[in-house]
Design a protein around this nucleic acid. Structure first.
Length: 853
RNA sequence: GCCCACUUGGCGGAAUAGGUAGACGCAAGGGACUUAAAAUCCCUUGUCCGUAAGGACGUCCCGGUUCGAGUCCGGGAGUGGGCACCA
């Protein structure tokens, strides 16, 4: 029999089915009977997709297609996080307008995303730089402004000298700009802040309700918010000859129970009192000057020695009336708590180090009850124990003492319970052009006012000059000059633009009304939100995800929205990694330039030795990027998708390998060739629908096992296991033909439906080869039936002392006694128990029998 | 330093409730087809002993609970991530 040599033309096949889906408008929904909102973090339009995008969008698409097959009304939109620095850099470097550059990039990336065959509803496409988006965002800004949740304040900002802009705290990594890598400087600026700290407690508390979020993300947010429960306490300054307008110092402590161990008070160098003292003392002002210099280099903070300067002032201990010296100390932060601490060297490591250095008393007040330790402390003891040397607190536990001492503070009117957070308000000002304009005017009479609703959106001027550096909006000849609509008074526009994290903190709401005004109180939001499943990188664990939660809570608190959390389910995928190589000089080498010669790695063209470094996240600088566009071109989207889903669990890192992508391709071609050989027409379908015979019962069992495994794996985000189960079943049916199995057609049909979320183009092609005229993307997900899974016989494991000795195939459902008899009558077992009388027998019916000898 | 996660063959990884460890794939080796190669197909592949039948060991290390532990508990090591003078 001559066989026609077939070639799997992925380009033709994939574009054909993409066109079909689009014609049928298959992925568009306006039904909200059974809503399921799948969202992947939208990309910055850099112009080219990378493997990280391929992975996250494949994962999201599998879920969207799977849920659609299960009968959900799936919302699966895509848009563009299109404001931000790179567009402005491109404008400066290539003399192209940011808008033009961005639009071109969006076009390119959209084409690339479309070639992946993802089931997006492109009718809902949004872009954060468009007027419709800006308008809604400015409305939100004004709402928050009017509710006093946005305010302006002068503050030390992290100034990135390369970007020429401020950075949020979380955009500073190791004292360097997160994007530019330049050392960050301190600069005093008047900037807009969002009052996220007002929501610190609900942001923290509601984490426990997010039970479909990964635990590690919640832990990161918890640490980021950083709640400390303690007490604040006012201490009276003993002699106040020098300072006239301060006679109390307020301190915050989480260990009020150790109050009797206090031996000093330390204040921050930029504490108010320090500033006042500096005016009168050259020594103090010099100390502060020195501190300011070291303030800029923030590295090795823990290694930095603890320095302090005695102010010659004392406070009075509130209970013993003893005088405690006041120090100005470099380890006290003005930005946390009250900028002043009470030093208890015996029970705080920092205080301990400080006390050792300046010869201050170390008074032990907590006794470790578990281990008897020497009174000569080697380091501070911070654990639990019994209070000693503490007057009325003696013999209490730490927790009892905390409660009691706060009571005493309150009685004396000197302090009370207090909670502090590490979280800082969100600085949302950027001194940049390519961002959402802040809808605020400064009127000539000094009033700071939001722009009138009717004037929205405030758009960016198109004619800008980037050549001068600095903020182009500030430098624009006319844009910022305006008038107050109500009074006609002259006014100047705010020239700062918004941090792009503001743009991305509410975009999931905009998808619900992409083309019209967004009504935050609409039924649409109530029905579709919170997003059922959000998918994205863990790098956004605290920034984007916390800001989004805050925006929703802030709007909710002023009754502008009815939801309280933006994302019900969250999934964080791992990175895509690839081998890296370095040559002897330490320079990165492209993996494709490395060849193996006599068991040594050498550079293809130079012949020099190279060394394999571990697999790392794909990045340009490490030269280990694999371009998805060329992979899709050469292998097809389905091959790329299958590779992305195989082997590694989605939450872990995925190692790119050429053999892996080849393997995926082989699988696809093999399946397709098999279906081609079976090719059917309508009549054949009817023929195969003959009554079942014995031959097919095993196939049916295997099929239902496969359906069960795939369904459960997909439900648990174990996409690698789903692929494995689908391949396992394929290995089984590859050996079958329609002639000898009358339910093969049905089995293959169900298998193809299960393949369709993973490799949708291939699945459509196979569906057609099975003789169907409709689309597999419209089919219902198959159900597994337990009646086909129940087996007549099972393999009973027989163990001796817990070690597997024998497997007996017996009838399922036998009683304990029946099972025991079968085992004890088994010849091999008799042999064993004849020589060693057994002491005990454990029988778990249908599973295991264990003989103890 | 503090907090969290992870550790299973040569590699990526499977393993409802503690009950056949290594599914599925990659790599490797052998064979078939071919003038040859590629492609494809078939077989082998945790380690050790044994010609074999078979046996012993084996899920980072040490200990515990249990008839039975990759899975539960205690201690330790290593890797990765987050926070880091936060009082």
């Amino acid at each position: 029999m001559s066989e026609i040599h077939l070639i799997y033309e992925h380009k033709k096949i994939e574009s054909y089915w993409q066109e079909k889906w689009s014609q049928k408008n298959l992925f568009s929904t306006n039904n909200i009977k059974n809503p399921y909102y799948v969202l992947e973090m939208f990309p910055y339009p850099s112009g080219r997709i990378h493997m990280g995008h391929v992975r996250v969008y494949t994962l999201g698409d599998v879920l969207a297609r799977y849920k659609r097959a299960q009968g959900f009304d799936v919302l699966h939109p895509m848009g563009w996080d299109s404001f931000g620095m790179p567009a402005e850099n491109a404008a400066i470097e290539n003399n192209i307008h940011p808008r033009e550059w961005t639009k071109k990039n969006i076009q390119n990336m959209k084409t690339q995303l479309k070639s992946m065959g993802i089931s997006y509803d492109w009718n809902r496409e949004i872009s954060t730089c468009e007027p419709e988006y800006i308008k809604e965002q400015q409305k939100i800004f004004i709402k928050l402004f009017n509710a006093n949740l946005i305010y302006k304040k002068e503050s030390w900002a992290n100034w990135d000298p390369v970007e020429g802009s401020v950075l949020a705290n979380e955009q500073v990594i190791d004292g360097k700009g997160w994007r530019s890598g330049a050392p960050v400087e301190k600069k005093l600026l008047n900037q807009w802040f969002l009052a996220i700290t007002k929501f610190a407690l609900p942001l923290l508390d509601n984490l426990s309700e997010l039970n479909e979020w990964p635990e590690n993300v919640k832990v990161m947010q918890k640490n980021w918010i950083g709640q400390s429960i303690g007490a604040k306490l006012s201490l009276k300054i003993k002699t106040n000859k020098i300072v006239t307008n301060t006679d109390m110092i307020e301190v915050f402590t989480t260990r009020p129970d150790t109050i009797f161990g206090a031996s000093f008070v330390a204040i921050a160098p930029d504490h108010n009192l320090s500033k006042q003292l500096a005016e009168q003392s050259a020594e103090i002002s010099n100390f502060i000057k020195e501190w300011k210099k070291s303030f800029i280099s923030e590295e090795d903070l823990d290694k930095a020695p603890k320095n302090g300067l005695f102010t010659k002032l004392y406070v009075l201990h509130p209970f013993t009336n003893k005088a405690l010296p006041i120090y100005i100390a470099n380890f006290v932060l003005s930005s946390y708590g009250t900028g002043a601490v009470i030093g208890v060297p015996a029970h705080d490591q920092r205080d301990y180090e400080f006390a050792k250095k300046y010869n201050l008393k170390i008074n032990e007040v907590i006794q470790n009850t578990k281990e008897k330790q020497n009174t000569i402390l080697q380091k501070a003891y911070t654990g639990d124990g019994k209070l000693i040397n503490s007057d009325f607190l003696n013999n209490m536990t730490v927790n009892e003492a905390k409660v009691e001492i706060v009571k005493r503070f309150e009685q004396k009117g000197i302090g009370k319970k207090d909670i502090k957070f590490r979280l800082r308000d969100w600085c949302a000002s950027r001194q940049r052009y390519w961002g959402c304009p802040i809808p605020i005017i400064y009127r000539e009479d000094g009033k700071v006012l939001p722009v009138e609703q009717s004037e929205l959106p405030i758009e960016l001027p198109e004619d800008v000059d980037f050549s001068k550096g600095g903020n182009p909006l500030e430098n624009h000849p006319t844009w910022k000059f305006t008038r107050c609509k109500k009074t006609g008074l002259k006014a100047i526009r705010e020239t700062d633009t918004l941090d792009t994290f503001f743009d991305s903190s509410w975009y999931y709401l905009k998808f619900l009304s992409p083309k019209s005004d967004t009504n935050l109180k609409s039924k649409l939001i109530e029905r579709w939100c919170p997003v059922h499943q959000y998918v994205g990188g863990i790098e956004h664990a605290v920034l984007h995800l916390l800001y989004s939660r805050f925006i929703v809570k802030a709007l909710n608190s002023i009754n502008e929205i009815d939801i309280n959390e933006p994302f019900k389910g969250l999934f964080c995928q791992g990175m895509v990694c690839h081998k890296t190589y370095k040559d002897e000089t330490g320079k990165w080498v492209f993996p494709e330039d490395v060849v193996k010669n006599n068991n040594q790695l050498i550079h293809k063209s130079t012949g020099k030795k190279v060394f394999a470094i571990k697999s790392e996240k794909m990045s340009k600088s490490k030269k280990n990027i694999v371009d998805p566009v060329s992979i899709i071109e050469n292998y097809g989207a389905d091959t790329a998708r299958i590779f992305m889903l195989s082997d590694s669990p989605p939450e872990r890192n995925l190692d790119w390998s050429n053999s892996g992508i080849e393997g995926s391709r082989k699988f696809i071609v093999k399946v397709w060739s098999y279906f081609n050989k079976l090719k059917l027409n309508d009549q054949d379908i009817e023929k195969t629908a003959s009554p079942e015979n014995n031959n097919s019962s095993d196939l049916r069992k295997q099929l239902h096992l496969c359906i069960e495994k795939v369904t459960k794996s997909l439900d648990n985000f174990q996409y690698n296991v789903a692929v494995a189960s689908l391949r396992e079943f394929a290995n089984y049916f590859f050996t079958l033909t329609l002639k000898d199995n009358n339910i093969l057609h049905e089995a293959l049909s169900k298998w193809v439906i299960m393949m369709s979320p993973l490799a949708p183009h291939l699945a459509e092609e196979l569906w057609q080869l099975l003789g169907y005229k409709n689309l597999v993307s419209e089919q219902k997900w198959p159900r597994y039936e337990n009646k086909f899974l129940t087996e007549e016989n099972i393999n009973l494991i027989v163990q001796i002392n817990g070690k597997k000795k024998l497997i007996i195939n017996i009838k399922k459902g036998l009683t304990k006694e029946q099972t025991e008899r079968i085992v004890l009558e088994n010849r091999a077992i008799i042999k064993i128990i004849e020589s060693n009388n057994y002491k005990k027998i454990i029988v778990v019916p249908d599973r295991v029998v264990n003989l103890v000898i």
